[in-house]
Design a protein around this nucleic acid. Sequence first.
DNA 1: GAAACCTCGATTGGATACAATCGCCGCTCC
DNA 2: GGAGCGGCGATTGTATCCAATCGAGGTTTC
Lengths: 225, 225
Amino acid sequence: MEDEGARPSAGRGRVSPQAVVRAIREDLIRGVHRPGQRLTEETMAARYGVSRVPVREALRSLEAEGFLVSRPYAGIAVVELSDDEAEDLLEVRALLEPLGAGRAALRRTAEQVGRMKELVSLGMEAAEDGRLEELSRLNSRLHEVIAAASGSRTLSQLVTQLSDKIAWVYAAELPRRATDSWREHAEIVSAIDEGDQDRARELVARHIALAQSAYRRRRPEPEGG
Amino acid sequence: MEDEGARPSAGRGRVSPQAVVRAIREDLIRGVHRPGQRLTEETMAARYGVSRVPVREALRSLEAEGFLVSRPYAGIAVVELSDDEAEDLLEVRALLEPLGAGRAALRRTAEQVGRMKELVSLGMEAAEDGRLEELSRLNSRLHEVIAAASGSRTLSQLVTQLSDKIAWVYAAELPRRATDSWREHAEIVSAIDEGDQDRARELVARHIALAQSAYRRRRPEPEGG
DNA sequence: GAAACCTCGATTGGATACAATCGCCGCTCC
DNA sequence: GGAGCGGCGATTGTATCCAATCGAGGTTTC
């Protein structure tokens, strides 16, 4: 086994209560913990520099978010999604995000629009520099802010969870779209800013549809032998 | 304060690991814990007959599911949903459940169909007897099974969480529809059984639409003062 | 030689004990 | 009299310890 695993990914000395969940979630999205891999509590505790208790709570949260699956006394493991399930993620997002964006166009606050525009700027810069990992984070972040602007806690929560999971499952395919999509992002934010619900909904629908075809993975053709 | 609160709702002596989450979630849906109410860990521990540790894990799960909200050192409280947010729940469900039902028509197993039919029978009986609370549970259960039959863990998880939250938020309005909807349920299950994706999707869409108008609460008109 | 049983180690589940933080109350000072 | 401040109780966050359960390996028996 490699000793590297013992080094905490979130190398801060102090961790705020919710930091463990975020650290683990981020590592999940980055592919540090692979699908199917079992996560023993003690190992995770050592990795993130805390005791087992906060780890267990974090794992419960991530289980509820759908990243992990657990069976009593059998431990917690990273979920393995089939190709069908992965595609469903995109389809669900195609339904939810336009709704959220439309709501955001109606209920957004000035501060939220400000943050969106800032994220778009940062995203375009990162696209210039080709910083793909940063782009992925900014992308998720923007979609989150838009979702939050919908004013619906539930909707926002769903979209965010979905967005995270898509970033996780499609990590390999993501860079293919990462650069282009920021032009569309700018348009979407503009529509939300202007309060144009229909246009926001429409733009997001197209945005998602484009991503959907770009992300679609070459399915390993079911080889008979 | 009333001492009644100290009696555990799930009166079993032994509780399986995941039982605490379910017990609390059920109580939330039944309105035992009111929106805005703060849930102190020790009180909950006493109420459900376990220590603080499993309670905390359960609360984290329910927080991730969107029933609760927490701030570090400020405790956990039951979420208060605005009328807008409550309506959004119905709208999201109107998008998701037809998709799930369509998938279920394609991917269902014989065993799942069997359980659906059994639930429909039980539901119709309960409707005859006017056992409203039982009806609510059976309704959620059926929607869960249909969602599970979609074959997509994520989709199933989303629909289930949504269904639970709707049962929670619209507890007061639910009986209005509870009896009638079981005829529609029977049709839906039949369509899924026959593998008719389009018809399943269509029927669920109408089913949800009917519920949507039935549940729509008389919004307390914004009184100017 | 294979299958069932048993024992043991590893890991999860739970409880208790302790430290950190917050909000409330009274007090002091202006 | 009101605002700022400090102490204190209550509650959350964490760590350590113990019990319950599962899986693996070895051993025995047919």
